[in-house]
Amino acid sequence: MKINDVILRTITKVVVFIILTLGVYLFFAGHHAPGGGFIGGLVLASGVVLLYLAYDIETVHKGMPFDFKKVAALGVLLATGTAIGSLFFDVPFLTQAHTYIDAPIFGKMGFSTVTIFEAGVALTVVGVVVTIILSISEDE
């Protein structure tokens, strides 16, 4: 019997973007409002999982040709990299720096190495969660 899941797929197409946007928002809001790398990563991962639920693995893989194991590895590398990077500036391991600049269009903007660290956290979470779910679902 062929299952007709056109409603699911149609809704998914819309909802996934909302979820991914929310994830990105949570990620960037983290420093000043609830959110952050961990939650952002989880929400992004749930968006991906929703895609996998609505479509089969091959289709999603064609659209998003990432190897999520490598995404996780990249995340850990980023986090460790910012930590080690601080050593080059003669400050203790994992010292974070931040600054504010006046950008021409956006006005006052804060930049911080914390964001790179958080990106590492987020990528690790996305990578690990998707890897776990994919590997379990591929198992017979």
Binding site: H31, G35, G37, F117
Partner: peptide, 17 residues
């Protein structure tokens, strides 16, 4: 730390280790 969310700043900055 240049942040507003204490929980998150603790997680990534004060005690990022």
């Amino acid at each position: 730390a240049g942040g507003g969310n204490i929980v998150n700043v603790i997680l990534v900055d004060y005690r990022g280790f």
